[in-house]
């Protein structure tokens, strides 16, 4: 019997390492950007699977969830290939343009539909939006505690967990009742690579798609319509960058650098 059901919320994002700016038009060049699983979410998936491995077979179920266009199915397959039990795709044109609030609305509805999720795990933020807000907003919508920047799960059972979170200058250890939500930092684990069996399973797995109707979501509460914030302008930062290369022997370089820093009053 399933003791603990875990939902892992993940997102497909454009891999930003490849982004280039066209120097003439100061606009982005999209070409060659691969869609990838949000790198921070890999730790969330891994932690879900590791919690399952702490228990006997069949006691923990790990479900991956994503909200996105149909092509987001790919990252759910990736999640399956590294050990997640099942996956659900939340996809509907009505979900598009969601801010963190509307995203948490949709996720909360899905989690309630799944039912009896004891733990929700997210990555600490996404690579594209970079806000880290969906976790705490989702937890608040579900009326459950949220621990951000979790770096270690010390103990967990169906009703309670001990979790350590990383703050800028310290670790704090909390005991909280479940259900709860956490977001994880990369310190928490090292994600595994897909197993052959996992890959086989990912190939054949059926991934159900839930749309707004199935979530009983009103069009006005999801997507851009259900968002409290709206992007009104997108632009690339004007980089007026000038670098002064300091030449010479190492001694001359250091001396020159020292003088520059003195002049700038930074030393």
């Amino acid at each position: 019997m399933i003791e603990i059901k875990i939902a892992v919320c993940i997102k497909q994002v454009p891999g930003t390492t490849e982004i280039k700016i066209d120097p003439q038009t100061n606009t982005l060049i999209r070409e060659g950007i691969e869609n990838i699983i949000n790198p921070f979410d890999a730790y969330a998936i891994e932690e879900g699977v590791r919690i399952r491995e702490r228990f006997s077979s069949g006691e923990v179920e790990v479900i991956a969830l994503t909200m996105g266009p149909p092509q987001s199915r790919e990252i759910l397959k990736e999640a399956i290939s590294v050990g997640v039990d099942s996956a659900i795709l939340l996809s509907d044109r009505a979900f598009a343009g969601a801010d963190t609030w509307a995203t948490s609305t949709t996720l909360a509805k899905a989690i309630n539909k799944i039912g009896d999720c004891r733990l929700i795990i997210l990555g600490k933020q996404t690579l594209d939006g970079d806000t880290g807000q969906v976790g705490p907003e989702l937890a608040q919508r579900l009326g459950i505690p949220f621990i951000g920047y979790a770096s270690s799960i010390l103990e967990i059972n169906r009703n309670k967990m001990k979790v350590k979170r990383l703050m800028e200058d310290r670790y704090e250890t909390f005991e909280i009742n479940l259900p709860a939500a956490i977001s994880v930092v990369k310190d928490i684990n090292t994600p595994r690579v897909p197993s052959l069996r996992g890959k086989m399973k990912a190939k054949s797995v059926e991934i159900p798609v839930w749309d707004a109707k199935q979530l009983e979501a009103d069009e006005d509460e999801v997507g851009l319509s259900g968002s409290y914030t709206q992007v009104v302008k997108i632009f690339t930062p004007k980089i007026k960058h000038e670098i002064k290369m300091i030449e010479g022997s190492p001694g001359e370089q250091v001396e020159q650098l020292y003088k520059e820093l003195k002049e700038l009053n930074v030393i």
Partner: peptide, 22 residues
């Protein structure tokens, strides 16, 4: 701050209003 980034979304969600991060 890291505390602010977990606290303030909670506040915005309770108040039912928008929040822009960072």
């Amino acid at each position: 701050t890291w505390f602010g980034r977990t606290l303030i979304p909670k506040v915005a969600a309770i108040l039912k209003t928008g929040l822009t991060a960072d």
